[in-house]
Design a protein around this nucleic acid. Structure first.
Ligand SMILES: [Zn+2]
Ligand SMILES: [Zn+2]
Ligand SMILES: [Zn+2]
Ligand SMILES: [Zn+2]
Lengths: 227, 227
DNA sequence: GGAACAGATGTAATAATATTACATTCTTTT
DNA sequence: AAAAGAATGTAATATTATTACATCTGTTCC
């Protein structure tokens, strides 16, 4: 399931907890990762990060420590994260990196289909594709259908990689701030393709953003109103 | 037809030409309009503005001079217009209004379904609905289907008014900057409704933005590449 | 007419988001 | 080791948007 990630606190900060003494995470792959994970990423998050490293090295990208940290923070969050939120969290010993640092990492992650930008929020969420990959093959050994073309098409109906169209669909809850990626059906994307074909428009990327109330918040709203 | 509005100059400025000596435009309706049109709006634009005044007064809104000017500038432009573009153009005798002035007008126009915001561009375009209304009935005497409910549903498949869901779809050309509103089919919106129903999500507003190359620019691109 | 009210606008300051340009460092290739 | 390319650091600045409060304008009610 893919419910909005948590009831109330939109934009929760990472707790900078003291769970950093674990393994150095050194993904045994070809990537340039050598971070010590100073952000207390959960084991699950670290798994996804390793998976991401594999995915993007296969696309000819380098998952550096910087990029890994940014992706980790986005994965760990329970709601979309803004660029300046990330900057805050990336501070080490009261020295904060400058905006370009984060924006460059975000650009990289976007290009490699590891995160999405929610236009209406100017904020970023991880692509669910990553989780699906991870479930399918935790070791990260096999990516997706047509890896040889550099054109990765995930089961969830949106494409990734240099040659593919970046397209994603979201449900955004105004009450709790939760965002759900609609990745379980290609229906919407197919429809867009059809319309574009009719208009002879060459689609390069697309975003669908629906704002409203998630299941939970719809229920609560009605409960509050109905008597 | 609804082609992207003009080949090359994205964000063209209004020419501040000297075509202002026409009629005072004083829409004979109940609205608070009494501007002198210092922006040289075309006759067509003035027609749309009058139509808009009628539409929104029917919704209980007041089309003031300020709002009228902003809408006029957006209508007159051949590409999406940014808020600060508008501020520039709204200057009178080297005195420029402050941001809230424009943002308030934009909010009003958005609420009344007269313009749309293109999230990916942080810019605004007129709703094609207005033109359709105008074609159907230039006098602006009858709006649409269910005016009595205050819930105006246009033929073009997206709703307007206080009770309706604001939803719109756009094709955005990266080469020429032109934006086309896909308003001739409810297919996309219907699909979104279906998906939302399945997820028990209450839709309040939605935007679909496809970026790529319009017919013209696709052709030019191919011509440039193919030999 | 005039008080009272609501809606609309003016104004100053500031917040939030994003980019440019250039210097430096780190990696890979030759 | 030198050269080339990729990534990062840094300072300054651009762009987009909001907050808070004062003022004005038109309408309602007496
Ligand atoms: Zn995705
Ligand atoms: Zn919710
Ligand atoms: Zn529209
Ligand atoms: Zn074009």
């Amino acid at each position: 399931m893919n419910m909005p990630r948590i009831p109330h606190p939109a934009r929760s900060r990472n707790q900078t907890s003291a769970a950093t003494d674990n393994a150095p995470v050194q993904a045994g792959h070809d990537s340039a990762v050598q971070a010590g994970d100073p952000y207390g990423f959960s084991e699950h998050t670290r798994g996804l990060l390793d998976c991401a490293a594999t995915l993007c090295s296969r696309q000819g990208g380098r998952m550096t420590a910087q990029r890994r940290d940014v992706l980790g923070l986005i994965l760990q969050a329970d709601a979309p994260v803004g660029a300046y939120d990330l900057l805050e969290q990336l501070r080490v010993s009261d020295r904060r990196p400058a905006p370009p640092t984060v924006y460059r990492a975000l650009d990289f992650l976007l290009e490699h289909g590891l995160i999405h930008r929610i236009e209406r929020l100017s904020a970023f969420v991880p692509c669910t594709h990553l989780s699906h990959e991870d479930e399918a093959d935790p070791s990260g050994a096999s990516a997706s259908s047509s890896a040889r073309s550099g054109h990765v098409v995930s089961a969830c109906g949106h494409e990734h990689g240099a040659c593919g169209v970046h397209a994603a669909q979201f449900l955004i809850c105004r009450a709790c701030g939760g965002v759900t990626e609609i990745a379980d059906t290609p229906r919407i994307l197919d429809m867009l393709r059809t319309v574009c074909r009719e208009k002879a428009f060459t689609m390069q990327s697309a975003s669908v953003e629906v704002e409203g109330l998630c299941v939970t918040c719809t229920g609560q709203q009605e409960a509050g109103t109905e008597r």
